[in-house]
């Protein structure tokens, strides 16, 4: 098979990096990655850190690919579960300190999933959130974006936000922090 580089078309994180956000994991960061799919981004991220990347995926076909990838590398822990099932996630991370939470789940309740999952995060941790407005509402992208931004502002501290427009249509990217910090 042909080797694929880490291209912004295939990865929201890489697209955000190309658009000028400076958010890379530090050396010993643990990462909770919701919506890992077959692990294109997870593979690249796991090379940058020595901590564990917990990759959560709900579809069996994609999770099979993810498990195959995890068997090859040393620091990917695949979790076959719904991202809404916080109890199981808590059980499988074994009380590790989570430094980064990344979410890329195109579903209606993506903000609720993020709010729930942020309870697993360390109080100083960063939240990276990729928002697909189309899956929340069919209204113009900007309207939904403003609505979601308001919702996020009540729950988190917004560090930066950006549109991923040329690479991913109707996608936005947020960097957030927990409010208490």
């Amino acid at each position: 098979m042909k080797h694929k580089d880490w291209s912004p078309e295939n990865s929201k994180w890489k697209a955000a990096l190309d658009r000028g956000l400076d958010i890379k994991p530090k050396e010993n960061d643990n990462i909770l990655y919701l919506g890992a799919s077959s692990g294109t981004t997870v593979k690249q991220i796991s090379k940058l850190t020595r901590g564990i990347v917990f990759a959560v995926e709900n579809s069996p076909e994609m999770a099979i690919e993810l498990v195959k990838l995890a068997e090859k590398s040393k620091n990917i822990a695949p979790i076959f579960s719904d991202a809404r099932d916080i109890e199981f996630l808590k059980k499988s991370i074994f009380g590790k300190r989570m430094n980064i939470l990344f979410q890329d789940i195109p579903s209606v309740d993506q903000v609720e999933i993020l709010t729930k999952a942020s309870t697993l995060l360390d109080s100083e941790g960063k939240i990276l959130f990729s928002l697909k407005t189309q899956s929340i509402s069919q209204k113009p992208s900007k309207e939904t974006f403003e609505k979601v931004e308001k919702m996020l502002g009540e729950r988190f501290r917004i560090i930066s936000k950006i549109s991923l427009e040329p690479y991913h249509k109707k996608h936005y990217f947020f960097v957030l922090r927990k409010q208490a910090y």
Binding site: F54, V67, A77, F80, S81
Partner: peptide
């Protein structure tokens, strides 16, 4: 638990759960 054991536990658990998800 060490990092290595956590990874191995998760791989094993995911395999078991995937097996149940194939109907």
């Amino acid at each position: 638990m060490e990092d290595k054991d956590i990874v191995l536990w998760n791989i094993k658990e995911s395999k078991e759960r995937i097996r149940k998800a194939i109907l």
